[in-house]
Simulated assay, not measured.
Amino acid sequence: MRLSPAELLLQELGVTDPTEIDLEAIAYHVNAHVRYRPLDGCEARIVGTADRAIITVNSNSQWRRKRFSIAHELGHWHHHRGRCLACRVEEYRPRSAVSPERTADGYAADLLMPNYLFRPLANAQKKLNFASIKALADAFNASQTATAIRLVEADFAPAMLVCHGPQGRKWFVRSRSVPDRWFPQDNLDAESYAFGIQFGADPDGPILRKIGADAWFDRVGADRFEIQEQTIRTGPGETLTLLVFCDERMLEDQDMRWYGR
């Protein structure tokens, strides 16, 4: 597998285990100094010249958030040196268009969870659920959200990740093996397990549970299938749902209108 720039950097430094990913040391290696200060309105920023940079990270953020911020700014330092950017680092999430921020996010993901280390540990997990996601997040000292996106985008299993807030769906990402026709509804269905977690006092989903696919997808034929759902809270007013496609017929290349009732 071809290595990304971030992965090449890690191998250049001899990183062979997730515990060896020391972001401040990596920054020093590429002539970027990391400092921590209270910041208002952003999580991090970078100021650089031709060959040196200062990365300032919000000292009030949680440690894993700080790690992503450093990795994100190192992405800018690698890809956008010499450009003037107004950078507002957000938690790693799918972005709809190619942009400097998306490029920096991708670099950060490769630096925090390089595929040459991530894939073997991911393959060792028995199944895709939030227990395995948490185990990997702890191993790489990354957030559950970033780790979940990494797993789903890597297509270890046909799955979808959907983030909701009080106003509805905020973003989603699907595995390559899931056809584009499966597009989640904007708002949570009251029949979904996620609804009681997002809007009620239900506890986080402890396991994957089967549910009718029509609770998540508003299209003809969805009611003929079941998927697996697990939802957790990821912040104030925000939930993250993992949907695993357990019926292979949902992955076939055909229009669901041909399924009879």
Rank of each mutant, 00 (worst) to 15 (best):
E229P: 00
E229R: 02
P166M: 12
G14I: 02
R249P: 09
E238V: 10
H76M: 06
L188E: 01
E238K: 12
A109D: 07
D17M: 10
P166W: 12
Q62E: 12
P94K: 04
I46D: 08
F156M: 05
H72R: 00
R52S: 03
F130G: 03
F172T: 04
E12C: 12
P38Q: 09
G82I: 02
G237M: 05
R65N: 13
I54N: 08
R65P: 06
G48Y: 02
A32N: 01
A109P: 10
R219A: 12
S192L: 08
F217I: 07
C84G: 15
V89P: 00
A135T: 11
R224S: 15
E238H: 10
F217S: 09
L136S: 03
P100N: 13
G205W: 00
E248S: 15
E90A: 11
C163A: 10
E24Y: 03
E238D: 08
P158F: 03
I133Y: 05
Q144V: 13
D155Y: 05
S99G: 06
Q125P: 04
V220M: 14
L242I: 02
S132M: 09
C163T: 04
H33Q: 13
A50Q: 05
R2S: 11
D218T: 07
Y259H: 15
T49G: 04
A108C: 04
M256C: 07
F183S: 11
R257C: 15
L128T: 06
A142I: 05
F156G: 07
G168A: 07
I54S: 05
N129H: 06
A27D: 01
E20I: 06
P114Y: 03
A139P: 03
F118A: 02
D22C: 08
A142S: 10
G14W: 00
F245K: 04
I70K: 06
I54F: 08
L208N: 13
V244R: 14
D138C: 15
N123S: 06
A201W: 09
R83E: 14
G48Q: 01
A222D: 11
R169G: 00
F183K: 13
L208V: 10
R249Y: 05
C87G: 13
R174T: 06
C42N: 13
D214G: 08
G235P: 06
A137N: 09
H78P: 03
W63H: 15
A194I: 09
E153I: 09
E229K: 00
A159Q: 02
F140Y: 12
